[in-house]
């Protein structure tokens, strides 16, 4: 049995402890310094996508109804102009998150893909303007349907070539938002 040597155990332990302490202290310091900036950035990115889907709105109010979270958008005269919903559906490579902005009259003002994991160059084209612009019409009561060719009705979305699953997922997510919108309107909110 080796004789217990206190310095042999104490010194490494103490050194490691001091290093951990200093690192933690430095991190806490950086955190205080960057905390507000990070929070600001997160808010800004959330608000900027809300502004993309509901142009004209300057402020948003978060509310919840029947377990559905949505945002009400107000213009600069504090007039209610529309709602923003976020919904998701399963795409080819995982969940696709879509934010949809609908005006009080039931006109879709824009959609924005918040997150997706689709194949670059194919499914990832769901973020292209050419695809998302198709949704900017009067929200059809029965939802959009998807077609593989050219769409000839407002309620038809022309799927991206080679990415039908991704296109369908986005359409489904938008349809969920439309359903939530009409439910909400039906309740007279």
């Amino acid at each position: 049995m080796k004789k217990f040597d206190s310095t042999e155990i104490l010194k490494p332990t103490l050194t490691l402890f001091i290093i951990c302490l200093i690192v933690t202290f430095l991190l806490a310091f950086t955190n205080v310094f960057t905390k507000d900036a990070i929070l600001n950035q997160e808010l800004k990115s959330q608000e900027s996508s809300q502004r993309i889907v509901l142009p004209g709105a300057v402020s948003f109010l978060e509310s919840e109804q029947d377990g559905i979270k949505f945002y009400t958008g107000f213009d600069k005269n504090n007039k209610k102009i529309g709602y923003v919903f976020s919904n998701e559906d399963k795409g080819y490579g995982g969940t696709i998150n879509v934010m949809t902005g609908i005006s009080v009259e039931g006109q879709i003002q824009g959609i924005s893909i918040l997150s997706h994991n689709e194949t670059p160059g194919l499914g990832a084209n769901i973020t292209s303007d050419k695809f998302t612009e198709q949704f900017k019409v009067n929200a059809p009561k029965n939802g959009f349907s998807i077609t593989k060719g050219e769409s000839n009705k407002n309620s038809e979305i022309s799927a991206i070539t080679g990415a039908t699953i991704s296109s369908t997922a986005v359409t489904n997510a938008v349809n969920k938002s439309i359903e939530q919108f009409y439910n909400l309107i039906g309740k007279g909110i």
Binding site: I19, V23, T30, N31, T34, I38, S45
Partner: peptide, 22 residues
Amino acid sequence: AYITIIAGFVSIVQMLVKAFAP
């Protein structure tokens, strides 16, 4: 000890990137 020091710097860089280059 090296890993702790490196992880410390990585976290600092991570926070700076989050704050100024989201």
